[in-house]
């Protein structure tokens, strides 16, 4: 309850600092990229890396149960069509958001799961940040652990990625900050007690100790936007999906470590 308020105050100070000629606008060289986990304490790294102490594994376990549970009026389970997730879903989370032919848009993994819920299972879509959707997403993300992020770059996805890049570099909100000012120009610096990470989406969904629960990448992005005193987009908005795609592209080739743990 107290931390976001403190973060907002600190961000206000940052805004003053960043109003100066600090912003360089140059992207981080590929070889200099670091996952957020490299900025964490040893203890938090250990918690993430040991399956028996990583609390997000509770969600993975639940996702595994849901995977083979029939749902909807079609009374079909995910596994009845996709069989063993270890094979069929390997690498899938590492390549989302991806282009969806039907809607001619880029969609994220949560939206892809909900498409199968509504179209295939004939069930109601799961709400964003609901336990079931996070559990299924965590279970799928887990099947990509250790694999490189593969953000597609083709003529269909490019406009969405470019829109995401624009959102990333534009100043917004009452503090007039951009994502890039913190995460590209000033990563590694301290913002109060937090180290500014490079904002790579390598570990989502993840267990955040501050939340005491698992949350999606969009929940994390909402936190940053609230800190910038900008109006956060609603869950599932195309702006958020575009941002996700841009972040994945920025992190292309980096190793998936979901489900992660963050402070």
């Amino acid at each position: 309850m107290m931390r976001p308020r403190r973060l907002r105050m600190i961000m206000a100070c940052m805004a003053v600092l960043l109003a100066g000629p600090f912003a360089s606008g140059d992207e981080i060289p590929l070889a200099a990229r670091k996952s957020g986990s490299e900025f964490m304490s040893r203890q938090t790294q250990d918690m993430q890396n040991d399956d028996t102490s990583n609390p997000a594994m509770l969600w993975v376990l639940e996702g595994e149960t849901l995977w083979s549970k029939p749902a909807g009026t079609a009374n079909k389970s995910c596994s009845s069509c996709h069989r063993d997730a270890a094979t069929s879903m390997k690498g899938v989370a590492a390549s989302y958001p991806a282009f969806d032919e039907t809607s001619s848009k880029v969609i994220n993994l949560e939206q892809r799961i909900n498409l199968c819920r509504t179209e295939q299972q004939k069930a109601s879509p799961l709400a964003y940040e609901s336990r079931d959707l996070l559990a299924l997403t965590a279970y799928l993300a887990r099947q990509s652990k250790g694999m490189p992020i593969e953000a597609k770059d083709d003529s269909r996805t490019r406009p969405f990625r470019e829109a995401g890049e624009k959102l990333y570099s534009e100043r917004v909100g009452q503090l007039n900050l951009s994502c890039a000012q913190c995460h590209t120009d000033n990563w590694g610096q301290k913002l109060g007690s937090a180290l500014l990470p490079q904002a790579h989406p390598t570990a989502y969904p993840l267990y955040r100790l501050e939340w005491q629960t698992v949350g999606s990448l969009q929940r994390r992005l909402r936190n940053c936007m609230i800190g910038m005193r900008a109006e956060p987009y609603a869950y599932g908005d195309q702006e958020f999906v575009n941002l996700e795609l841009y972040l994945m592209w920025r992190a292309r080739g980096m190793t998936m470590e979901a489900p992660g743990v963050r402070p």
Binding site: T52, S53, N54, M57, L58, Q212
Partner: peptide, 9 residues
């Protein structure tokens, strides 16, 4: 022995 349990506390 290691154990993790789901609970809101």
């Amino acid at each position: 022995i290691k154990a993790l349990i789901s609970h809101p506390m």
